[in-house]
Structure formats: C-alpha cells, structure tokens
Design a protein around this nucleic acid. Structure first.
Lengths: 244, 244
DNA sequence: CGGCGCTTTGACACGAGTCAAACCAAGTGG
DNA sequence: CCACTTGGTTTGACTCGTGTCAAAGCGCCG
C-alpha cells in the first residue's frame, strides 16, 4: 500500500539523478516533522511569507490563486509524492494558496533546512530543479488547455493527466481511479462554470468516454478519450535518470 | 543601452543570492559562446531533445506550444536577461518551441556545462532555481488570466506585465515601451483570435487607457489600466537577496 | 426531520470566434 | 519609378460556446 513519504518523493527524484547514500540520508532528514491537516483549511496562504514547504504523503491538495472578484483559479492538483509550496519559500511572498481537498498527511520542510540541504548536496538541488521543471511542464500544459482547447477537450485532458500521474504512484490505472474532487473543483481548475462542467461531464458520459461519478473516475473508452483530448503524456517525463 | 549578457543575467541572480567572486566567474564562463539568430527560425524545437539552453542578450523571443490543429499557444515572452530553455535541457525532450521575434543575440549554454556549474557552486543552482520559480510565477499568472479574465483584462494585464519586466532591465517605464509584437503574437499568447485582439486594442485605445501602435506601447492612463487589469506586480519579486 | 453540500436541468444572454473583404505600408523586381 | 506582392491591421455580419440565473433533486449527517 504505501506511499510512504520518503518512498514516493525519493523515488521521484531518483528518476532524475541516481541518489547516493548521503543524499538519501539528507533527504530523509527533511521529512522528520510529519503533520496532518483537515480538508478545506489552507496550509499556505496567498500573500503571506511562509517559512515552510511540504512533501505530500497522503491525500489530495490543490494550489490556487483567488481573484478580487471572488472567483478562483486552481493552478494544479497535487497527489502523494508531490512537493508543495517550493515557490512560496523561494520567493519573498507566496503568490498562491494551498488547500487540502481531503484530510492529508505531509512532512513540513523549513526553508533553512531545504537551503542547507541544497548547499550540502548539490545534486539534490539539481534533482529538485528537475522536479520543479516537471511540475512547471504540467502547469504549461494546463495553460495551453485554457488557451486553446474547448470545454470537453480540457475536461478529458485533465482527467487523463490525473489518471497518468496517479498511475505513477500506484493509485490508478487505465481503467480509472478514485477522485475526491467536486465539480466545483473541476470548474475552478478548467476555467469553466460549475454548471457547464456538469453539462460536459454528462456529454462525455453519454458518449461512453469517461464517467465521473460518486468519487470515482472510470475510463469507458481510453483510446478514444486520448484522441479527443489529444493527450500526450510525454511532458510527465518518466524516463530513467539523466544524471548518474 | 547596456544589457550586456552577463550584466543582465548576473544582476538578476544577484537579486536572490549575493554572488561570490567564484560564482561570478563560473557564471561568466557560461556565456562564452555568443550566437545570433534571425527572427522566425526556432532556436529550440518542440519535441526534440536539445543539448543547449540560452541566456538572452538582446531582442525578444517567445516560447510556445503548437497544437495538432495548427493553432499555437504562446507560453511566455522573454526579454534580455532571461534564461531560455531550462526545461528543455532538464527534461528528456523539449515540450515547447522557442522562436525569436526579432533578430536576437544569445549565449549558448550546454547541458553539461550547466550541470557542472551547479555541482561546483551549489548556491548558483539555488539561484537558478529561484529564477525558474520567478518565471513559473509569471506562467501561473498567465494561466489565471486565461482561466478567469475576459479579453480586455487579459490584454491590459499582459501589456502591463511586459512593461514592468522591461522597466527592470531599463527598456521601458510607466509611460510606455517599444514592442516588436504583432497582433497575431498577442492573440496566440492571450488565447484569442487576431480579429478579437484588434477589437480589444481599439476599445482600450478609445477609452484612452493604452495605445498599441507602430511597434510602440503607450500607457495613456497607467493607474486606470492597473485597476482594470487588477495588476499586482508582486509576483515579479524584485526585492533584495534572501540568501547572503 | 431538517438542513446543507453537491449535482442536475432548462431558458436566456452575451462574449468571442469565424468568414469575408478592404486597406495600408514596406519591400521587390521589371 | 511604378506595378505587384506580402504581412499586418481594420471593420462588418453572423454564429455558437459558455456564462448566468433560477429551481429542483438528492444524499448524508446531525
């Protein structure tokens, strides 16, 4: 079962650099402070200067930016093994909020500890830079979706991306996965209204492509869905280490 | 004038870490291979594995992702002092293309040289990580715009952001700046059609907010434009070094 | 039993896309 | 020096995807 903190995160970094014993050790020291958070209460607040980042161990969170008019845009969802709030410790002030979608478990990483770790083991810094690039690639793909895809393509793409990411940590496969998101979450992520999200989901269901219902996503016709969304998982970059 | 390669980039990194003589030296070695490129011919091709990144010295470029249906989405514009294609050397394959908008000058940085530099001077790696975070913050802000702002707000925001960034390298101020973009570029960046871009520009001009014409952007009423776009430059993060 | 999130559906309005055509300035070649 | 081309801008008419408003349904928990 699994997804122990160190497992998921170290495994992820290990996909880029072959980590030495020392590096693994430094890494494991980074997640001594385990904490849990309840759903709906932000771990990181938009606009504040935070001292800490987190390595997510279990549960889902979303990072978002809220607008003065009350609407919000979800930047990305994070799942176990993901690093949260790197930008909020590197930049002076956090430009986004981070909210747990369900109850979560995470390891808190203080800014100074992280910077020290980088200074001590440069390859770790490079690995984190790689992981950050991979996350940015996802944000970029999301941006492309908002700019150039219509509602159903966006939805299909998002559901497929989540599926592919979950599959990497053993929480889903080509048949589907458990998904705690509400249609409001999807709306805020896809730049749509909740009402339209519902219409799109119905349409995808009626065309027997995907079913989103009762906290579960079922891929009814994976290949056709991939074609509709023009989904190419290359940007998730899960090939072997580049740096040995 | 100015914007010598090393100047702009080193100055930028210096905003995050106070760079030592050694670090400055390593940095300057990174831009020995100066090259020029003509407008319209990609420096980096989408989907290829590239070995090199670039530090832009003069001119404008855009990074974009093109869709199978022929449309393209511009991710971001880069101006002198910006680092290009970090993702394309860290990830196995470049997920985006990079195209010069005018003739440009840039220093080529080979993957191995960059990784070696990181290994030798960890603080440099941290600084680059910071710069990458700052770039990501811009991409995120762009994403929010596509998801939650209408055409004129998006346009206003983009023109303001470019102005603020150019001001940081001494190429513009609150009165305006020179801008080599066509309305097609704006359309591809803002997720609009070129026709609609034109309508929006006309409207902003008629309301005496900004004028985009003849390769020059003039802010006719900066405060009111900021209000319309809800522009908060905090994410451009240009406060003093955090790491000394 | 009552209430509160979340989902579902319908009717209507509007922002932005598409298509088509004209215009303009800057090159380019005869 | 004048046609001609080409890339970019401008405008109008029409269409359509998505937002908005409103209301009902549904399950779950206190």
């Amino acid at each position: 079962m699994a997804t122990n903190i160190s497992d998921a995160f170290a495994r992820k970094l290990g996909a880029f650099v072959a980590l030495s014993a020392t590096e693994l050790d430094v890494l494991s020291r980074l997640h001594r402070r385990r904490r849990t958070f309840v759903a709906g209460h932000d771990l990181v607040h938009q606009g504040q200067s935070e001292q800490a980042a987190y390595i997510l161990s279990s549960g889902w969170v979303c990072s978002y930016k809220s607008q003065p008019d009350g609407s919000r845009q979800i930047i990305d969802f994070q799942i176990p093994g993901d690093f949260l709030g790197l930008r909020s410790i590197l930049l002076h002030t956090s430009d986004h909020g981070i909210e747990p979608i369900v109850e979560i478990e995470a390891a808190e990483v203080l800014r100074q500890d992280l910077l020290d770790a980088f200074a001590r083991t440069p390859r770790l810094a490079t690995a984190v830079l790689w992981a950050a690039s991979r996350d940015e690639a996802m944000v970029v793909e999301h941006l492309v979706g908002l700019g150039r895809r219509n509602a159903s393509e966006r939805m299909a793409h998002m559901l497929l991306e989540l599926g592919a990411r979950l599959a990497l940590v053993g929480m889903g496969d080509k048949s589907g996965y458990d998904c705690p998101l509400t249609q409001y979450h999807l709306a805020d992520a896809l730049g749509l209204s909740a009402v339209h999200v519902n219409r799109v989901l119905r349409q995808l269901r009626e065309e027997r492509l995907v079913t989103f219902r009762g906290g579960h996503v079922t891929f009814d016709d994976y290949p056709r869905l991939v074609a509709l969304a023009d989904f190419d998982p290359a940007y998730l970059d899960q090939m072997g280490p580049m740096l040995r």
